[in-house]
Write a protein that binds this DNA or RNA. Structure first.
Lengths: 231, 231
DNA sequence: GGCTGTGTTTACAAAAAATTTACATAGCAG
DNA sequence: CTGCTATGTAAATTTTTTGTAAACACAGCC
């Protein structure tokens, strides 16, 4: 029923990286990897991963800096840091920069898997989506029956709404929507306006005045943000 | 239509217990409680609850042991464990002992309600097959004699109707019907139109105007939904 | 064998949805 | 103001989903 959980592993040592891939694939995760810090940063910022495993010592951008950048873009993104150093300063620094957990090498693989599960659970990945979405304009959307009071939505429209609702505390970029809703790999320069078109269609259905959208806000340069009811 | 869903809450902290009672009563559940592990075990084993919420740390018999005992008696009984501990070992142990879900304190009440609903749905509570199905167009179907006023149904048609009637608050996808009625493994892309054909046959038998179906509605992108009489 | 009732597959048409194309417009840096 | 880029959207096009007739399969029965 539910989608596989997607992990990004950023680790330069080949042996460790491929070992981790095997383990997590075995446990049913969908895994992508980066061996270089710059690649890792780019992939991490694409927003298409449920959890990111970050080595601290990396060629190019280091793990702390990647974590920092991720936090600037998305405060919720789960991140676990891996490192060979185990001095207290590192722990403090890693946690301060906002990693959700911190595992010192050499680590037990079992332990790491358990930590990953714990962080995912804490951050609510894989939780049942609620059956209703309540918009700030009062509209209530039935996500199972693909409808609201007087409009019906297509599957794709509902998937977009569900994702925006889940991330309703921040704007979501077109690339992230393409990755998470459409399932496109995050290779850049996909030339398509299909996200905008779907947003336009949604606006026509849910906005009081579609030419002055308030419920699906455009955050220029960042993406779209759904305004849900604040209880 | 159906009886209230019965919950047992086993929790020793008075504040949490009474808070949970309020929430679940508000949501329409019938709730009983136990504050002591031994009482909880006795009541749980009485078999009269649709779902049991179990705190792990209890005076007397602890939550794990209660869960264990429940499983020995009834493998199907839905159980959700609550606990203040959030170490990985607890998660593993709780799941191993066969709880259907596991919620770590402090939990969001909304989240807990959603989990309860999810477990109930998964375990099929409230799906009691009734002898009669009353359709929104007034037709009454005798599910045991495979007939209505002036039409007879085949076994397969009735199985489809029964499943749709059980899930009549939402559309059911072809894949779900294939899995639950036909018993096909929920593998992807099985190429068959047999579900559609059966829906078409049913429509010819129960719709006033089969080319404009109202009783078996198509929810494009989601599946078919049976509209039953709303009392 | 032939007949009958079910269930399934095949094949195709129609409807709906998704996507691309093409162009318009708005915001912003200089 | 000018030029650039990001965004909005109508219309055309492609793809997917759904509906259904007709052929096929197969079991039970006379």
């Amino acid at each position: 029923m539910s989608q596989k959980v997607r992990l990004l592993i950023v680790e330069d040592e080949d042996a460790i990286r491929s070992g981790l891939v095997d383990v997590f694939v075995y446990h049913g995760y969908e895994v992508e990897t980066a061996a270089h810090g710059d690649d890792g940063l780019r992939m991490a910022l694409s927003g298409q991963f449920d959890l990111i495993l970050l080595d601290v010592m990396l060629p190019g951008t280091d793990g702390f800096e990647i974590c920092n950048q991720i936090r600037l873009q998305d405060r919720q993104q789960p991140v676990i840091m891996l490192t060979a150093k185990s001095s207290d300063e590192d722990i403090v620094q890693g946690l301060t920069l906002g990693a959700d957990d911190y595992v010192a090498k050499p680590f037990s693989v079992t332990q790491l898997v358990l930590r990953v599960q714990a962080v995912l659970r804490r951050s609510g990945v894989g939780e049942e989506a609620s059956r209703e979405i309540k918009l700030c304009n009062g509209m209530v959307i039935d996500t199972e029956n693909l409808c609201a009071a007087d409009v019906v939505f297509t599957r794709r429209e509902m998937d977009v709404l569900l994702y925006l609702a889940q991330q309703s505390d921040r704007p979501v970029s077109r690339d992230e929507l393409l990755a998470r809703v459409w399932g496109y790999a995050n290779n850049m320069d996909i030339e398509t306006r299909t996200v905008d078109i779907h947003i336009a269609k949604l606006r026509r259905k849910i906005e009081k005045n579609p030419s002055n959208p308030e419920t699906i806000a455009t955050v220029r340069g960042a993406g779209y943000r759904l305004m849900i009811e604040v209880p």
